[in-house]
């Protein structure tokens, strides 16, 4: 088993690779070491050009299924293309991003293959026997579990985006492109996609923001969230939140960070009026510099802060905004 390959489903949408595809190729490369092959499966229409990035991220081989019926993701045609590939190649491990697409496709394939699948993993490691140890959250992130798939192959898993870093892209790296034959006929695919409507997104995606100003229940009101907007604006950042403000309707659900929201890794994270429960911190622990502002000196957020400020967010945040504005005006 030790030499068997690690296969990554290289998710793309609208002809763009999802960042998680590269993260997983990088992780697969790290798990595989130098000896085991890392293979990426790339499905879509007119997506051959994306293979280069997969090689650069560490793939030895890219399996390309390029066909008009694969342009917009649908469960059945994607599963029908991948199933025979997995059956024939018998990879040891198959990784998917835990995106809406990955979590729709992976279980369909796991059931067809009769193998085990672990959802939404936060970490992957190999035990001394080479068995994949998958760390997944349970009970809303209150508990973590280790899961293994001892006897069935492949070991399948969906991995949450942003838990592994983007690997360095080595443009000199070469790989083998294998074209898969696709025998799909549109008329035989029962499900039709009638319409795709983009949902309004913040101008800068939380996941891509270098600076995030996040608020929790301690912000107290929708009004007070405006203070965070002002601070974020002067820093060129984006506002995020823990769950309570989202439940209260102070801010949209697309801004939620943590277990049931997004995972972020900005250079600067300013945590305002949030206590730092694990369900939240699991989504921001990879921030470089964390500034915590809370009136409770015992709030757990201070345990992972670089700089801590005990005080009233309604006084501290405007003071920060003012100071940063001053510096900006001086051209700092």
């Amino acid at each position: 088993m030790a030499e068997a390959e690690i296969l990554v489903f290289a998710e793309q949408r609208d002809g763009q690779l999802e960042r998680v595809a590269l993260e997983l190729v990088g992780k697969a490369r790290a798990l595989a070491g130098g000896s085991r092959p890392v293979v990426a499966a790339l499905l879509g229409s007119g997506v051959e050009g994306l293979a280069g990035d997969l090689f650069a991220a560490g793939a030895d081989e890219v399996l390309l299924a390029d066909h008009p019926t694969l342009k917009v993701y649908r469960t059945q045609p994607y599963a029908d293309v991948l199933f025979p590939v997995l059956k024939e190649r018998q990879p040891d491990i198959v990784l998917f991003g835990a995106t809406s697409l990955g979590r729709d496709l992976a279980p369909r394939l796991a059931a067809r293959l009769g193998t085990g699948l672990t959802a939404d993993c936060l970490d992957l490691a190999l035990d001394p026997q080479g068995l994949l140890v998958q760390t997944k959250p349970s009970y809303g992130g209150n508990v973590l579990v280790h899961i293994t798939i001892p006897r069935h192959r492949p070991q399948m898993t969906t991995v949450r985006p942003r838990v592994f870093p983007l690997p360095p892209l080595d443009r000199a790296r070469q790989g083998k492109l294998v074209r898969l034959s696709v025998n799909l006929v549109e008329d035989q695919i029962p499900l039709k996609v009638l319409e795709v409507v983009p949902r309004p997104q913040p101008t800068v995606r939380l996941e891509d923001a270098a600076v995030i100003v996040a608020g929790g229940r301690g912000m107290g009101s929708k009004e007070n969230f405006k203070l965070l907007e002002e601070l974020a604006q002067v820093l060129g950042g984006v506002v995020g939140a823990t769950r309570p403000p989202v439940d209260e309707g102070w801010i949209g659900p697309d801004r939620q960070i943590g277990q049931s929201g997004k995972t972020v890794a900005p250079r600067l994270y300013i945590a305002c009026g949030l206590s730092g429960v694990v369900q939240h911190t699991v989504g921001m622990q990879k921030a470089d510099v964390v500034v915590a502002i809370n009136k409770d000196p015992n709030a757990p957020i201070f345990d992972l802060a670089t700089y801590g400020i005990v005080g009233d967010v309604k006084e501290i945040v405007p003071a920060l905004t003012a100071r940063f504005k001053e510096l900006k005006a001086k051209g700092a």
Binding site: G114, L117, T148
Partner: peptide, 23 residues
């Protein structure tokens, strides 16, 4: 069931080395 739960634990606090308090 192909999958086995081999361990269950509470998430470690995401503690950093040392926080500097500003006052």
């Amino acid at each position: 069931s192909p999958t086995r739960v081999t361990d269950v634990f509470e998430p470690p606090g995401h503690r950093r080395s040392e926080v500097e308090m500003l006052s």
